[in-house]
Structure formats: structure tokens, C-alpha cells
């Protein structure tokens, strides 16, 4: 197949897009879209913090705004085994949450969840996986204004919370 012809001007524009990336902090992300669950924009990773939550189902990889949204949709939108990769408090470290034969588990097992009721505008703060209890305390301290009184949730508790959200509870 011969390559597609595009006008010189449009090609220049396209190459200009590449050039413009040089000045954009952090990697560009394909498909910055809305969360399938809450319809708010999916938050992108930054230079200091990962924010994208990915639900892997077969060959699909669907991005969500927060871990609560992903688990909530897992209840009804996906039947069978799946994996959710949730960002943590540390850039480059994630928690892998798996549902296999209906049972939930996660790696690392030391992870806990922030599951503090917040306005969904800041769900990346209020619903987040953190790598361990100490990280939880540090996260809550860092975001004291929004998370005061937050208690760490186990995976079972987080699933219960998210499933209730899916039901409007």
C-alpha cells in the first residue's frame, strides 16, 4: 500500500506537533478522555505523581479517574477475571489489584486504601491506593485539609465501598 498523501502544510503542522512536544512537561498521553464511570476527565500522570488507573480486561485497557471508579465498574461492566493497576503515593510504584474467580487480591499485600468521602473533583486524593500504613499516614498528613479523619481501608473494605458507590449508596 502506498503511503497516504497529505498536503505539505498539514505535514508541517504534524511535525510541528512533534516539535511542540519538546516543550511539554512529561510524556504526552494518548486518548485523554473521560472516566467511563464518573464522566470526569481521566487525570494524567505528572512528573512527580502517577494518577492514571487502568483496568485490564482481556486485551482491553480502560483508564479510570480513580481506584473507586475502576472497582465500581468492575461490579457490573465486566464479567470475569480482571486486573486494576492503581497508582500510589510514589511515582513509578503501583498496586496491582486482581479479581480472579470472583475473589479479590492485591500486590503488594501491605497496601491499604484511602477511602475518604470527598468531592469527586479531588478523587485522586480521597480514593487512592498507598503502599503501606506508614504511607497512608503521610498521605493523609500531606492532604490534611481534605482528608482529616481518614482511616485506612483494606481491599475488602474498599471493594465494599466502591460496590456501594456503583449502586448509588
Amino acid at each position: 500500500m502506498a503511503s497516504a498523501t497529505v498536503s505539505v502544510a498539514r505535514l508541517v503542522l504534524g511535525l510541528g506537533l512533534i516539535a511542540s512536544l519538546v516543550s511539554i512537561p512529561g510524556p504526552a498521553r494518548a486518548h485523554e478522555t473521560k472516566c467511563p464511570f464518573c464522566r470526569k476527565p481521566v487525570l494524567q500522570d505528572t512528573a512527580d505523581l502517577d494518577n492514571e488507573v487502568a483496568l485490564k480486561f482481556g486485551k482491553k485497557r480502560i483508564e479510570y479517574r480513580c481506584v473507586l471508579c475502576a472497582i465500581a465498574e468492575a461490579k457490573t461492566a465486566y464479567t470475569g477475571d480482571l486486573t486494576i493497576v492503581a497508582p500510589t503515593e510514589t511515582k513509578g510504584q503501583s498496586v496491582t489489584i486482581t479479581r480472579k474467580d470472583g475473589k479479590w487480591s492485591m500486590t503488594p499485600e501491605t497496601a491499604v486504601f484511602v477511602g475518604h468521602k470527598v468531592n469527586h473533583k479531588i478523587c485522586d486524593l480521597g480514593y487512592r491506593a498507598v503502599t503501606n500504613a506508614a504511607a497512608f499516614d503521610a498521605w493523609v498528613a500531606k492532604h490534611k485539609r481534605d482528608l482529616e479523619g481518614a482511616k485506612p481501608l483494606s481491599l475488602d473494605e474498599m471493594v465494599k465501598l466502591a460496590y456501594a458507590a456503583e449502586s448509588g449508596g
Partner: peptide, 16 residues
């Protein structure tokens, strides 16, 4: 919509 590069147009539009 996936890579932001220009799409073929005119007589080549079918190639997209």
C-alpha cells in the same frame, strides 16, 4: 484521534 498526526485527505481519504 490516537496519535494526532494528520489524516489522509482528498483522493487518499479512504486510506484512513
Amino acid at each position: 484521534g490516537h496519535c494526532s498526526m494528520p489524516l489522509p485527505d482528498g483522493e487518499d481519504a479512504w486510506r484512513a
